[in-house]
Design a protein around this nucleic acid. Structure first.
Lengths: 222, 222
DNA sequence: GAATTATACAAGTAAAAGCTCGCATTGTCA
DNA sequence: TGACAATGCGAGCTTTTACTTGTATAATTC
């Protein structure tokens, strides 16, 4: 993956590649300690035990660091996604699908607290950086796929809507996980799974026949 | 009791009170245009058509402006809260309670886009400012109260858990509303209400669920 | 070995943004 | 009216921070 710019091609040496990794690690640590805005490039450089000048040899600006970090996350998260949308996962009952997906994603999140920052940076009128946007879109698409496999009769609109609600519900709980001890975390996660199940279950094919009885008064908005 | 010099009592004049309001209005506008970090105090002052110096006569720093804004929101939101947790609302069927609450809160949010900013500023390890924290806590408590009325058998833990999930689900959808047109908004809101209903309905004490408004003197609670 | 390129540094720059200061004006009260 | 407090201003101070620059060293290629 070389930068395709008209500027001189930089042929990284082993040390350079290593440096990039260590900068990203430092950035991850500093971001999750101080947040994106408070994290200065000098802080990141210091954490990586290099000079500011060295940092700027590998990244043109602060934004590029976030981009690279998001790209790295995207790559690592693909493993989790694959387990969620694999052919085996596709045939799992909804309960188990939810269970495995949430557990996998939560484990990843707990291991990479800075991921939350990238996800939840929503400055109005300021569009997300492209890599982060791609990350968000990918999660949504995967969930949509899982829903489609289990409820193929749904319209594309409804599918996307359901995936959107599900993803946002999940994401909204993430910040709480970091402020909780293990017991509270387990409670929260169980409740999150319950909410997701109750929301998604009525969408499933086999249940389409009797949901009207269960949710009869639900024509709340037309 | 001798008067202390170190506590400068400022007796605001009518003009001053007006200025404070106009500064808050300006801050609200600027915040929702550029986000909290990009919004400079000079921007806010300019928007309010006053000098930076004048701004700093009323607010010691940028943070205090946010505090005051949050306080103002808290006050205005209390009206919405009251309609949600009033005695009439308490006897409403769950569907209608959800409907009214969401509609009320969403209407407020759409009228005050900057509220979202205060809500969703989650810098890790950096605790929210006290006024914003109070705002969040108040919403949670009101929802908790509504749940308790409808499901008095729930444990305090479960009640708080359910309220937490509900509030976070609601909040996670708010940012989407501002990027949507009216049709998409309606779809989203309907879906949000559906999710909330499906999640909360199983918690209900079924006896209370079918109370039809006019039953007076029948109190199974308290 | 020579030329070239990548790596490394740290002092330094420029601009931005929060905030201050001195001073002038307006309003209030005795 | 005179004293005092509140209001108002805007140039500019201070600090911060993203980023640069000049130079020196290590690695790769010929």
């Amino acid at each position: 993956m070389e930068p395709h710019k008209e500027t001189p091609v930089v042929r990284r040496r082993a040390r350079g590649v290593q440096r990039i990794e260590s900068i990203l690690n430092a950035a991850e640590a500093v971001f999750m300690e101080m947040g994106y805005d408070e994290a200065t490039t000098n802080h990141i450089a210091a954490r990586a035990s290099i000079s500011p000048g060295s940092l700027y040899q590998y990244f043109a600006n602060k934004e590029e660091i976030v981009q690279a970090l998001a790209a790295r996350y995207t790559e690592e998260l693909r493993l989790v996604y694959d387990s969620v949308s694999s052919s085996e996962a596709a045939s799992l009952p909804l309960v188990d699908w939810i269970n495995q997906s949430i557990d996998g994603l939560v484990m990843f999140q707990l291991a990479h607290p800075a991921l939350l920052l990238l996800f939840s940076r929503n400055e109005p009128l300021l569009q997300f950086s492209s890599a982060v946007q791609a990350l968000q879109e990918e999660v949504l698409t995967r969930v949509e796929g899982g829903i489609q496999r289990r409820a193929p009769h749904l319209s594309a609109t409804q599918r996307r809507l359901s995936a959107t609600i599900s993803v946002h519900l999940f994401r909204s709980i993430l910040p709480l996980l970091h402020q909780s001890n293990e017991a509270e975390r387990d409670l929260l996660l169980h409740e999150l799974k319950t909410a997701l199940y109750r929301y998604l279950e009525p969408l499933l094919d086999k249940n389409m026949n009797h949901i009207s009885g269960k949710t009869k008064g639900l024509s709340m908005v037309e």
